[in-house]
Design a binder for these strands. Sequence first.
DNA 1: CCACGGTGGTAGA
DNA 2: TCTACCACCGTGG
Length: 168
Amino acid sequence: MRQTTIDTVDGSFLATFTSRGLASLDFPSAANAAAVLAPAAEIALWHHLTVQALEQALRGSPPGALPPFDLSAGSPFQRSVWAALQAIPPGRTRSYQEIARALNRPGGARAVGQACGANRIPVLIPCHRVLAANGRLGGFSGGLEWKIRLLQREGIGTVNTLELASLS
DNA sequence: CCACGGTGGTAGA
DNA sequence: TCTACCACCGTGG
């Protein structure tokens, strides 16, 4: 298990790699700076791919080549949700309910939300593109400010003028 | 706006 | 098992 910080225009993210690939990507926080470790040689390529992909994704563009993800900690249901998330293109959104239906779990919208919250690789696994069925934002474990920022970078300004205004 | 019931997956006891 | 969580959703006041 190796951790490295990734400096971006939005701050320093913290990437955690296992022998299988990228296991988590944490949003910038004060705690990140203390945890810096030099990347081991064997994960240097994955680290490079992660840096490039994150930079693109933060710009609202398709991330291009991705490192392998280590999602082994997730349940089968969670992994199926995360796979569905990766199929949502930048600039597009789905509702929790739509994801549930696509997985043949009608009525499982709430469980989908829970699985989104369990996503350890935000931004690259785009849980921010999932909104409530009524068009409102829904939640975001990294903080709604991030969800809004990421959506706006992808050109989704319609998140609801109401929603944006009601945040202050 | 709010309250409520129904819902499916998860973690912990 | 039982139980109490939840980034949900529809209905009804």
